[in-house]
Amino acid sequence: MLRTFLAIEQHGTMAAAADRMALTHAAVGAQMRTLERVCQRQLFDRSGRSIQLNDAGRSILEQARTVVAAYDSLLRGVADTHGVEGTVTIGATVSSMGFLAANVIKLKVPYPALNVRLTHGSSPELERQVRSGEIDAAVIISEPRTTTLPESWERLYEEPLVLLANPAMAPDEASVTSLLKRFPFIGFEAASLTGRHVTSLLRRLHVEVTPVLEMNSIAAIADLVRQNVGLSIVPRLRHAAWTNDPRLIARSIPGTTWRRPVVWYEFGRQPRATAIVKNQLLAALAE
């Protein structure tokens, strides 16, 4: 039931989820009505042409992913702990490499015979490497897709867009739009998925900016903001300690709804080994 629920969120519609789960549309609808009875609340908005997750449905997504991951781990059983061996190569973008590496290290004790090699790159390059078989899986920035190929997309977490500024240039009473109009702007690479959404957000805010430079590294942008070079709009990195940084503030932006999706992508070449890494990541996110 929870797998079907997650498939609806991932693929956008009950019909697409039914195809993915090899169920009839009626069976998917019946499962979701049962899930709503179990949760004692409505999880879907049925007022429009298509059925969409409502706020209550979105609020249990992370817990549903955790339960499914825990169930899969239970089925593998204790006997599998020392039975997985060999080498897998997992890629990640620079902004998510720290999260991936920290969790791979935790696998050394329970899976001593499993060797996980790490590599980094841009999301398009890592996606290409997974498809070509150069690497086994990757943590990338992408919208999950529906596909008939033996590939798997699973959303790990999301990062909202925020205004990143130096406290010296952003007093509490100043609005986001006024700050964008007053100070130099450091742009996120316009051709990237994130850059396109930043451009769209600036258009909705009716703010025209001329970036002093464009970069595709949030860490590099943050360092320039610390040096008071300018401010920027970037994803609020889930695993960055910005709240403890005296030279950075991350302000929420009114009217922004898009959240940068960080997803797990693989082609099913070494499913047992990659599942161990993926489930470790999901468990860490749940914690």
Score class of each variant (00 low, 15 high):
107 L>M: 07
109 V>L: 13
110 P>L: 08
112 P>L: 03
120 H>I: 06
120 H>T: 14
122 S>Y: 09
123 S>K: 06
124 P>R: 11
125 E>N: 11
129 Q>L: 13
130 V>Q: 01
130 V>D: 02
130 V>M: 06
131 R>S: 13
131 R>Y: 13
133 G>P: 04
133 G>Y: 06
134 E>Q: 15
134 E>F: 11
137 A>F: 03
139 V>Y: 00
139 V>T: 07
140 I>Q: 05
142 S>H: 13
145 R>D: 05
146 T>R: 14
146 T>N: 11
147 T>Y: 04
149 L>Y: 09
149 L>M: 10
149 L>V: 10
150 P>M: 09
151 E>N: 10
151 E>Q: 14
152 S>E: 12
153 W>G: 04
154 E>L: 10
155 R>E: 14
158 E>K: 11
158 E>N: 09
160 P>I: 01
161 L>V: 08
161 L>T: 03
163 L>S: 05
166 N>W: 06
167 P>K: 02
167 P>D: 01
169 M>D: 12
169 M>G: 06
169 M>L: 15
173 E>D: 15
174 A>L: 14
175 S>T: 15
176 V>N: 02
177 T>K: 11
178 S>W: 09
179 L>I: 03
179 L>G: 06
181 K>Y: 03
185 F>N: 01
186 I>N: 02
188 F>G: 05
189 E>V: 06
189 E>G: 09
189 E>T: 02
192 S>G: 07
192 S>L: 10
192 S>K: 07
196 R>F: 05
198 V>M: 08
198 V>I: 05
198 V>Q: 05
202 L>V: 01
202 L>M: 08
204 R>P: 08
204 R>H: 12
205 L>S: 10
206 H>Q: 14
207 V>G: 01
207 V>Y: 06
207 V>M: 05
208 E>M: 14
210 T>S: 15
210 T>P: 02
212 V>E: 01
219 A>Q: 15
220 A>I: 02
220 A>P: 04
222 A>L: 05
224 L>K: 08
224 L>F: 07
224 L>E: 00
226 R>Q: 05
226 R>T: 07
227 Q>S: 09
228 N>E: 13
229 V>Q: 11
230 G>Y: 02
231 L>E: 00
232 S>I: 02
234 V>R: 03
234 V>E: 03
235 P>T: 03
240 A>W: 11
241 A>L: 11
242 W>L: 08
245 D>R: 04
247 R>V: 08
249 I>G: 02
250 A>K: 04
252 S>T: 15
254 P>Y: 02
